[in-house]
């Protein structure tokens, strides 16, 4: 098979209330495009994007979750495998900001202890509809010791920066190992782990 198409595989997860723009943030990053029609994500989806950091090809497997409560049990089963989690809220939606603590609790309950977290205040292009001041986002991020960006998938503000920063933070913690090869592992439930190819080929 392939010698190598990348050096490292990082698994990221997007969470946050329904409608805050998680899918759009991801779509902007992976396809550099934006779609105004709102289609609620069903359960869980993912996209792949390979980036280069510090001379390493890093494949980002980014899981996009449904924000709706009814998919909760499906989406939380994907937390465990994530190395980085982006918690997204909508600066024009106060409720989505209030729910940050709920999402942080979800991370505590379901994700790995050493998971890299990041807070994104999306839709920052809609200044006239803003209800969450940037300072409040910065404050809550500081309180939890996590990074914070205000982003706009529509206006392409800070999207790539956010993903690259999260990837860098993970890379910093990653011990240097032999590069691996293909196979995007997508097992879920008990964790997005890489045992599939070993066990059943």
């Amino acid at each position: 098979m392939a010698k190598k198409t990348y050096d490292l595989l990082f698994k990221l997860l997007l969470i946050g209330d329904s409608g805050v723009g998680k899918t759009c943030v991801l779509f902007r990053f992976s396809d550099d495009a934006f779609n105004t029609t709102f289609i609620s994500t069903i359960g869980i989806d993912f996209k792949i994007k390979t980036v280069e950091l510090q001379g390493k090809k890093i494949k980002l497997q980014i899981w996009d979750t449904a924000g709706q409560e009814r998919f909760h049990t499906i989406t939380t089963s994907y937390y465990r495998g994530a190395m980085g989690i982006m918690l997204v809220y909508d600066i024009t939606n106060a409720k989505s900001f209030e729910n940050i603590s709920k999402w942080l609790r979800n991370i505590d309950e379901h994700a790995n202890e050493d998971v890299e977290r990041m807070l994104l205040g999306n839709k920052c292009d809609m200044e006239d509809k803003r209800v969450v001041p940037k300072a409040k986002g910065e404050q809550i991020a500081r309180e939890h010791g996590i990074r914070f960006f205000e982003t706009s998938a529509k206006a392409n503000i800070n999207i790539e920066k956010a993903f690259l920063t999260l990837a860098e933070d993970i890379l910093r913690k990653t011990p240097v190992k032999e590069p691996n090869s293909e196979n995007v592992d997508i097992s879920s439930g008990s964790g997005v782990t890489g045992w599939k190819s070993k066990c059943c080929s």
């Binding site: 098979m1 595989l9 008990s190 782990t193 890489g194 045992w195 190819s197």
Partner: peptide, 13 residues
């Protein structure tokens, strides 16, 4: 086919 298992940060649950 190489295996990526050793790269996984998480042991299987």
């Amino acid at each position: 086919a190489a295996v990526e298992a050793d790269l996984q940060p998480v042991p299987p649950a």
